[in-house]
Nucleic acid binder design. Structure first.
Length: 481
RNA sequence: GGUGCCGUAGGCAAAUCGGUAAAGCCGCAAGUCUUUCAAACUUGUGUUUGCGGGUUCGAUUCCCGUCGGCACUGCCA
């Protein structure tokens, strides 16, 4: 039987990194086995589901390169299927109507808590007579539908990452609700744990790969598979991504949506590479790979059991690696929107200048966003001088150096790197100063800082935009002040 | 409270059947290169494998206990 896996996000928020990582493992497993990767949108909670979140999830998966083979399908369009399945269980006597009110359940739980017991439904309406049911209906009560869970059962499965896992039926919290409150005789909105099973059955999912936070759902779902007479799929519960403090990564930890990472300037290659490394390692210790490369080597034997803390340093390193290796042309395309968003006046027609700038910045980039601050002095005519640069400009002997450069610049058109070097040599010779003084002063004057990318290249770019003479003059004013 | 899972250096991790540990990567430090920063390269840096017992000639790997962390415990997904 060929492998069929799925990713089943609910559109109650933007694509989360945890969901994306689950998608990565599913994708890898599907591709490794030449199987099928299905996308299913779990939108049964229509109070929290939003179409824009669905779009965000689709866009995010696409951006990451996690292409799917089937779908997306939407659970809200399959409600009949679920109702039919509920009906089947009702007819088999495996499910029943429970007329308990919220208030009654609250009282029950409070009593259990007072006795130090674990909260659970006590199955009180499991064997209601027709008369009792009619009495509740006459009262105007609407029932939910519950699925019978046998306390004496022990549910065991062989998890692909956790090996054997066992659960006692009595620890499942009593008979579970599978459909929300509705008029007696009707079937209310079916709930997650039930719907998942019906869908996975219907879509013939062979391997359920999901986060560890779902282990507790698995025994309930296995019982449902049995009740519906279906084959039980294999399960793989992957370790969670943890925040630096060791808790499940949540929205509170700041940046967690794929969209946020994208905006900051992480590239998809780095993201999927890093997510793959969180909980899995290649047998040959390879650290950098594409999705297809990882798929070749991927298997659950090498997936860890323990949660993995999210580490910005390593993600940053990977991202910088991909940025450094990227063709300049493509990197330029990626950088342009960042410069535009920063409000820099840039002429996209001046492709050569932009490409040169990109080549200049590339080795220093960690994230695309970094290019904004790093290239500010090349776009904005007047910027604040860094404190260290001001100190440098006020050094003895700086003024004649800058004047010398300025005067030799007078009337000069475009010039090359070699010509710039010659110009500097000439100033060194004429004034009898050290080259270091000239270079350092020139850097301070032109870039307004003491550190940054290659000076000569920066100068060339500045000169093309006629920003160098004005900078030099401004620097002279600072030196004189 | 209950149930389940997990616990190798600052982080990610490796270690066929138990064979006598921390491979590799990130980080950090120093050096080389460079006018500077970054990159790159070189070198260095961290262990009573949570703790305590047991089985064994030998345990990260098996057993028991203990502590800790996390997850779940909904008419959310």
């Amino acid at each position: 039987m060929s492998v069929r896996v799925r990713i089943a996000p609910s559109p109650t928020g933007n694509l989360h990194i945890g969901t994306a990582r689950t998608a990565v493992f599913n994708w890898l497993f599907a591709r490794h086995h030449g199987g099928t990767f299905v996308l299913r949108i779990e939108d049964t909670d229509f109070e929290r589901s939003r179409p824009e979140y669905t779009q965000n999830i689709l866009d995010g998966l696409t951006w990451l390169g996690l292409t799917w083979d089937e779908g997306p399908s939407f659970q809200t369009q399959r409600l009949d299927l679920y109702r039919q399945a509920v009906q089947t269980l009702l007819e088999k006597g495996l499910a029943y109507h429970c007329f308990c009110t919220e208030a009654e359940l609250e009282v029950m739980r409070a009593e259990q808590e007072a006795k130090g017991q674990a909260p659970r439904y006590d199955n009180r309406h499991r064997n209601l007579t027709a008369e009792q049911q009619q009495a509740f209906v006459a009262e105007g009560r609407q029932p939910v539908i519950r699925f019978r869970i046998d306390d004496d059962r022990t549910i065991t499965w062989n998890d692909m990452v956790r090996d054997q896992v066992s659960w006692k039926g009595s620890d499942l919290g009593g008979d579970m609700v599978i459909a929300r409150r509705a008029d007696f005789g009707e079937i209310g909105q079916p709930l997650y744990n039930f719907v998942v099973v019906v869908d996975d059955m219907d879509m013939q999912i062979t391997h359920v790969i999901r986060g560890e936070d779902h282990v507790g759902n698995t025994p309930k779902q296995i019982l449902l598979y049995e009740a519906l007479g279906a084959n039980i799929p294999e399960f793989a519960h992957t370790p969670l991504i943890l925040s630096p403090s060791g808790k499940k990564l949540s929205k509170r930890d700041g940046v967690t949506s794929i969209d946020d990472f994208r905006k900051m300037g992480y590239v998809p290659e780095a993201m999927v590479n890093y997510m793959t490394l969180l909980g899995w390692s290649a047998p040959d210790a390879q650290e950098r790979f594409t999705l297809p490369e990882a798929a070749e080597k991927f298997d659950f034997e090498r997936v860890n059991k323990a949660g993995a803390k999210f580490d910005w340093d390593k993600l940053n390193w990977l991202n910088s690696q991909y940025l450094h290796d990227m063709p300049t042309d493509r990197l330029t395309d990626l950088l342009i929107p960042y410069w535009q968003n920063a409000g820099y006046a840039l002429d996209t027609g001046d492709r050569t200048w932009l490409t040169q700038l990109t080549a200049l910045l590339a080795p220093s980039l960690v994230r695309l966003e970094d290019a904004v601050a790093m290239s500010r002095y090349l776009f904005v005519p007047t910027i604040e001088y860094a404190e260290a640069a001001v100190i440098q400009l006020k050094q003895e002997g700086v003024t004649p150096v800058l004047q010398g450069i300025l005067s030799s610049l007078d009337g000069m058109g475009t010039f090359t790197e070699a010509e710039a070097q010659t110009l500097i040599q000439q100033v060194v010779k004429d004034l009898g100063v050290k080259k270091g003084l000239v270079m350092k002063s020139l850097r301070a004057a032109l870039t307004c800082d003491l550190h940054g990318p290659d000076l000569i290249q920066s100068w060339l770019l500045l000169h093309q935009h006629q920003l160098d003479t004005s900078r030099l003059q401004e620097a002279l004013a600072i030196a004189a002040a």
